[in-house]
Simulated assay, not measured.
Amino acid sequence: MTHTPPRASHDHEGHTAHRHGADHGHDHDHDDQTEILDLDAEVLAEHIASLIAWLPVGAEPRHVADLGCGTGVGTFALLKRFPRAEVTAVDASAAHLRRLREKAAAEGLADRVYTVQADLDATWPDLGTPELVWASASMHHMTDPDRVLRRVHGALAPGGLFAVVELAGFPRFLPEDAPEDRPGLEERCHAVLDRHHVEQMPHRGADWGPKLTAAGFTVEAERTLTVNIGPPHTELVGRYALSSLRRIRSGAAESLSAEDLTALDQLLDTDSPRSILRRGDLRVRTEREVWAARRT
């Protein structure tokens, strides 16, 4: 029988926070993170909805858990797709969960969302017995992902589905020959971050199929979603690119050449004629891998 956490746990923040790396960042720049996550939800709304619609859930779930929910990109898409469901949204960041609750209240969904601040590598939160667990861009941050997979398996209702969504790092926005004075700048920035991530997040880019099978799941489906969004969303994509490149700069600046750093700063200067907001050739390019695994 599905158990939904009691309403008293709606704002439970009693667990030690687990920092979710570059995708979720650190306390001092929560505002930047929140902006990126909110823009991510807006820009990729149709793609996220299509992923959720594709999931082989069977009967409509009444209780869903969103692990590493951020500000609710997946949470609200899940609520929309399953109008009778309640979602337990789990994240390490109190700021992200506050933002999620604000959005839920504004959309009249507060009574269908339960937030839990938790360290998923430490004390496992009480998720009840969800029929669907969604983990987007969170599993590769785990110190011991195999243990987390076993915990998800134990929490799921028999026959329940676990959806693991992983993305290929930050999206790309610029053409390969941009900017004009430093072509290939964006790829060089990503290469720097990739080197850092190899050390900090060894499970990034993993094939989660064998790991899910080892944890007792049956992998029913896999999918690669290619994202390529451009005009007419130029203004929205510009703001998304600006926020994302600011985050990339914070992680890559020390390893970039002086010339690359100058070119990047010109892109990030909203008053500069070379500002990324003035470009009409931006596109959001990324890929997301999805594994749908059943607890049998």
Rank of each mutant, 00 (worst) to 15 (best):
E199M: 13
E86S: 10
P231E: 13
G160P: 03
S255D: 14
K80T: 15
E180T: 15
C69R: 01
L261I: 05
A95R: 02
S250H: 13
T224W: 11
A110W: 02
P232C: 01
C189L: 09
P5N: 12
H3F: 13
Y240M: 09
A110P: 02
L55I: 06
R101D: 09
A168S: 14
L156E: 03
G108F: 08
A89T: 00
H203P: 10
E35Y: 04
D66H: 00
M139D: 02
G154Y: 10
P56H: 03
A252Y: 10
P6K: 07
E166A: 09
G14T: 01
A89C: 04
D29P: 10
T75H: 01
V198L: 08
S257L: 07
H28A: 15
P273V: 04
H24F: 12
V219E: 07
A85N: 03
G70E: 00
A89G: 05
A122F: 07
Q33R: 13
G108H: 07
T296C: 12
H190C: 12
H63E: 11
L267W: 07
A106W: 03
G25F: 04
G169I: 05
A77H: 06
P202V: 04
R274A: 15
H26S: 14
T262Y: 05
D40V: 12
H190F: 13
G128H: 04
E254T: 11
L39I: 08
D119S: 00
G72W: 01
A191L: 06
R295C: 05
Y240T: 05
R101C: 00
W291L: 10
Q266H: 11
A49Q: 10
A59P: 11
D38R: 15
Y114Q: 08
V43W: 01
R285Q: 10
R204D: 13
L39K: 09
E222V: 09
P179D: 07
G72R: 00
E235Y: 04
V290R: 00
